[in-house]
Design a protein around this nucleic acid. Structure first.
Lengths: 296, 296
DNA sequence: AGTTTTCTTGCCTAATCCTCCGTTGAAGGA
DNA sequence: TCCTTCAACGGAGGATTAGGCAAGAAAACT
């Protein structure tokens, strides 16, 4: 398959939607596309477990600890919910940034992983929850096939789900396999940390006792901190705070509620504290941010 | 004055030394020049209080907290001893990176500051110890004059010291004035922090009690940490560690002593710990670093 | 305009996160 | 074999945070 086939197909879909710029969701799996015709400023968001294929242009994505540069022809696999800062770096009107995002369903992965040799070559190197590899032609072919199968109702019902499984299976065979297997293998540090991130997300507003998390993960506190940071790029509390602030910004922009109430809703007990940290993360205090980015 | 005059003069001096690349010290004030014909990799160094004028090309300089991009035509003033990571980003054979570095003598500044209105417009904005401004034509003219005065013995003896004072005086009038006055004004936070950095440097190998520093500075611990970080870009202990590691690397490259002994000499009590942190900061553990950068 | 509410910002204290260091033990290299 | 590196751990305390309080700024509302 010519690698351009997928790009062309996606571009056509975006054109059909009349979407010059922005994001466009597609298909039952939650897949979506992105197209931007100029570089963007840095923006903080949350990544969910996903496969991201950059087909044209380039972006930069990072946590406080590490930053990656993703050029076209590369694929990104994120294995955890992860607050990141990202920025489109290469995009012009004639050659816009185009990317495809395919959410990873960890349950499907887990189901498939049973059939895979548990731990071949445990040459675990980089525990970070983002891995970056050159894109895989067979994977692209599968994604394109999936896109086509979504076009008509019958194939979408019958074939598309099968292809989704295939795509997940290919993830476990391709260059990202290492990272994902580590995550699924039940005794691994990565898996334990995943548990912890899950607990944090499950009730953001609650104050978590980090000692508890460490204990549940069966590690010493210091080992837990170290692994957590290696995987997520931030410390546990930072991680929670980032998620809280991102949720708060979401609320701030989409509702008209009082700022102090939003602060309480995401777990802060003092609006002063909230204001301070919001400004530190996003550059502007909440009120000004709302003025600049009014409710949509 | 054409802004190119200074560049031409410096280039001529470098040529005269037959120096295609690297640094070249000049004159009694400790002034020196830099020229590189290609971008460099990141490298950690210590900045002393100085004025750095980038005349061609561009560099990137940062601490863990902040990174600045310095293009030609801009001048940098550093007011503290500061461990930084810097990298030449723009330099080609035809258009090399050329910069002039003029050390700042804080005693001269203090002497001059007495004659300046103590605190006009205390619009203190950015407490960071690096400030970045467009370069100042009169300053360039003074620097060029100083260079010329260094050419012959008599003018170097008689006139150059006067011009050095003039340069310092101009610093107190130019765009960097704000930053420097804050440093000199005896009650300011910047000044207090400067004291603290000085204490740390005075005996690197000693373990400092940060509480003491805070107390001497007359601040609460948390306020001290905050100000310290705002000024230096790192926390007090990080600051000390960076200086220690830089000194260790210096020793590593210029002597043949055992690595563990160098570790002890700069204040570490375990060579394992030293090895780990050295690798974290410089990318390679000490032994490999010595192999790659043998004693000169 | 004045008044009131809401938000922002500064510094402090207390609490605790989380980083650091020295240890041990094992593996890698000269 | 010796020196160095690596990985995990536990303890110590350095660094950071949350929240209180208060002064100021900015909106919002009379």
């Amino acid at each position: 398959m010519a690698p351009a086939a997928l790009l062309n197909h996606v571009s056509a879909l975006l054109d059909r939607e009349g979407l010059a710029q922005g994001a466009f969701a597609h298909g039952p799996s939650g897949m979506h596309f992105l197209r931007y015709s100029s570089p963007t400023v840095q923006d903080a968001t949350v990544y969910r477990p996903l496969l991201c294929l950059v087909m044209q242009g380039a972006k930069e994505v990072g946590t406080s600890a590490r930053t990656l540069w993703v050029a076209d022809g590369q694929s990104l696999v994120v294995s955890h919910a992860l607050p990141v800062v990202s920025r489109i770096t290469e995009a012009t009107h004639d050659r816009p940034y185009v990317a495809l995002v395919f959410p990873i369903d960890l349950d499907i992965l887990r189901g498939l992983a049973a059939d895979v040799t548990p731990k071949t070559g445990v040459g675990a190197k980089d525990p970070f929850s983002i891995s970056l590899c050159p894109s895989d032609a067979e994977m692209e072919e599968a994604l394109l096939r999936y896109l086509r199968q979504c076009e008509t109702v019958e194939t979408r019902r019958l074939l598309a789900p099968i292809t989704v499984r295939e795509i997940h299976a290919r993830l476990l065979l391709g260059p990202h396999a290492e990272q994902l297997r580590r995550l699924l293998w039940h005794e691994s540090a990565a898996s334990r940390i995943f548990q912890a991130t899950f607990v944090i997300q499950s009730d953001l507003a609650r104050t978590v006792a980090v000692t508890d998390l460490a204990q549940r993960a069966g590690m010493s506190s210091s080992a837990f901190f170290e692994h957590f940071k290696a995987v997520t790029g931030t410390s546990p509390l930072q991680y929670q705070k980032d998620l809280r602030l991102l949720r708060a910004r979401e609320a701030l922009r989409s509702t008209n509620g009082k700022i102090s109430e939003i602060a309480f809703a995401v777990g802060y007990e003092s609006s002063a504290q909230f204001s301070r940290e919001y400004a530190r993360k996003f550059g502007l205090p909440p009120r000004q941010d709302r003025v600049l980015h009014p409710a949509q």
